[in-house]
């Protein structure tokens, strides 16, 4: 083991340890990446090569026709658009609504605040299954099944978002607010002009978590939409699997296209993603 007395030995010991570390991390990395590589390779193969035993590793005939087959069996462009609109709509609404409520709970005193906040916390603690049947009944009654508003509206409100942003506002110093109050700003102006810009890291964390869960959610869109033109990508992929059950090259092309946008966003906003998850993590 490294010994402080000699200056050369620890260095070589350290190098050995770093090589061992890289080896372990690379093996783990292959396990994490492997499925993506296999997904991509399969999506470029003709059907015949996927049913062959043993399977070909690299495609003998590289082809892109599986991607066009996805567009033939699914209104993929439409579903992509639906998913984007749903994700953006829910996320923006959550940012506005949850930050307003979070600020009010953190900094303003009003009757019933504790009771209301307790009720919101109870929403946070029970599983999502509990809301699904009545949400379906309500959306059906409103005539909102198979509509964009049906997909978006219930997801515009988040108890988690209120809780998260309340924590963020509670941790902020009071001085700036007091100064604005003396200048005659009303509480909403103080919130909107002064406090909200300071809450940016918290807002980014909520936006990322909200967008991820909207993009990836399965059970809710499965229940609310039956018309392929109104579906999101996750529900669409489930129907694609129903149609091309054994044609894995088409399935992989669809899976890859549905996943790619979020992965691109992640690669661009890496730091925010990682900080967002870690931020909400460390708040526990």
């Amino acid at each position: 083991m490294p010994d402080l007395a000699s200056s050369r030995r620890p260095r070589s010991g350290e190098r050995g340890r770093l090589i061992a570390t890289h080896t372990v991390l690379i093996v783990g990395g292959l396990v994490m990446l492997g499925p993506f590589v296999w997904e991509l390779l399969t999506s470029l193969k003709p059907f015949g090569e996927t049913t062959q035993n043993p399977p070909t590793i690299l495609p003998h005939h590289w082809q892109l026709s599986n991607y066009s087959k996805v567009f033939q069996s699914l209104p993929f462009g439409r579903q992509f658009l639906n998913t984007v609109v749903m994700t953006v709509g829910r996320t923006l609404a959550q940012l506005v609504f949850c930050s307003m409520a979070g600020y009010a709970f953190a900094r303003m005193r009003f009757r019933g605040a504790n009771v209301l906040f307790g009720l919101f916390l109870s929403v946070l603690m029970v599983p999502g299954l509990l809301f699904l049947i009545p949400q379906y009944v309500l959306l059906e009654r409103l005539g909102w099944l198979n509509t964009m508003q049906g997909l978006i509206v219930p997801g515009m409100f988040s108890a988690f978002g209120v809780f998260l942003l309340r924590q963020v506002f509670m941790a902020m110093p009071y001085e700036t607010e007091e100064a604005a109050r003396i200048d005659g700003a009303n509480p909403f102006q103080i919130f909107w002009r002064i406090m909200l810009p300071l809450a940016r890291p918290g807002l980014a964390a909520l936006a990322i978590l909200s967008a991820l869960s909207a993009w990836n959610d399965l059970m809710f869109p499965l229940v609310v939409t039956t018309d392929p033109n109104k579906m999101t990508l996750s529900a669409g992929l489930a129907t694609l699997q129903g149609e091309h059950f054994t044609d894995y090259s088409v399935l992989m092309a669809g899976a890859l296209m549905a996943t790619a946008p979020m992965i691109v966003v992640f690669l661009v906003l890496q730091k925010q993603f990682v900080q967002g998850i870690a931020f909400t993590g460390s708040k526990g």
Binding site: L212, N216, S234, L237, A255
Partner: peptide, 8 residues
Amino acid sequence: VVTMPVAA
């Protein structure tokens, strides 16, 4: 983590 569970 950012992969759609359905696709995964």
